[in-house]
Simulated assay, not measured.
Amino acid sequence: MFQDVTKRESYLLSILVILGLLTFTTACTPMRASPFSDKVETNLSNSNGSTIALLQERLSHMSYDEKPLRIALLADSHSNYRDLEQAVHLLNKQPIDFTIHLGDMTELGLAVEYEGVLSMLGQLRHPWLTVIGNHDAVGNGKYIFKKIFGEYNQSFVVQGYRFILFNNNTLEFQNEGIQFNWLEKEIANSTEPVILFQHADPFNKHNFNTANIKQIERILLLPKLKAVFHGHLHKFSQTTFGTAHIQEVHRTEEVSYALVELNKNSMTTHLCHGASCEKNVVDISESVAF
């Protein structure tokens, strides 16, 4: 009898939690059929593609000698929206060419979460791009992401570097698959040094099987690949594989972000908590043909 009462109380509590979530996610937003739908209150479409075109128009004519390229990196802002807002405020005070979010903007891939993040990142005074994270791909999240930002994988050249935005979330894309062959060809055929941005760390054993890791190692050894930036593990860390510098970016908790400055032969990273930053200079001149 006691167990039956406990079960009923547990079910009631679960229902109350779900009702509370629905109330919270719909209280300050336009009415929608369900917070779990893929209907998003935004006019943005193919935002990454449009931003890339804008960056190429603004920056492609620039050379290394005229000015370095300055990029800000954010990661894993899910459940850290107040810190994200403060990070945006700090980034707006600095001379940045563009920002890249390394994924996990949302916790559950909900339309209302995407709308909230768009509102916050929309306050940036410079262009911004994003890759998809595993949390962003939950439920209808991957379809919402594609509606707003366009293709999951994109490659573009700005100021003498090739930048690649890559989806490497294998568990959430088991049906679609991950385009490792596309990535390998894109880097191998590049005439520019390559900087890769993705969500998960390259050797994540929860994400990748043995065959994946063998191909990833082959990709990381390609001489044109100079750096890989990722989030997912929620801390700052760095390593190298071959000549590639692999940099993990801290989640936005504690108002964390990274700043990257690219010159002809070197890359400088500033790993920041608020206004306090640690500087690191990386030589990327080896095997780069200019």
Rank of each mutant, 00 (worst) to 15 (best):
G116E: 12
G116K: 10
S119D: 13
S119K: 14
L121A: 01
H126T: 06
P127Y: 03
P127A: 02
L129S: 03
L129F: 07
I132M: 10
G133V: 01
G133D: 05
N134H: 09
H135V: 00
D136N: 08
A137W: 03
G141D: 06
Y143V: 07
F145I: 00
I148Y: 02
F149E: 01
G150T: 06
G150E: 04
E151A: 15
E151L: 09
N153S: 13
N153W: 08
S155T: 11
Q159S: 12
Q159K: 15
G160I: 08
I164A: 07
L165Q: 08
F166S: 03
F166E: 04
F166V: 04
F166A: 04
N167E: 15
N167I: 05
T170L: 11
Q174D: 12
E176S: 13
E176I: 01
W182K: 09
W182Q: 07
L183V: 02
K185A: 09
N189I: 00
N189V: 00
S190K: 06
P193Y: 11
P193C: 10
V194G: 07
F197T: 05
Q198A: 14
D201L: 11
D201R: 13
P202M: 07
P202K: 06
N204K: 12
N207M: 14
N209D: 15
N209R: 11
T210P: 00
T210V: 09
A211M: 09
N212L: 06
Q215V: 04
I219F: 09
L220D: 08
L221W: 07
L222A: 08
K224R: 15
L225S: 05
K226G: 04
K226A: 10
H230P: 00
H230F: 13
H232W: 07
H234Q: 08
F236H: 12
Q238P: 01
T239I: 05
F241L: 01
H245G: 07
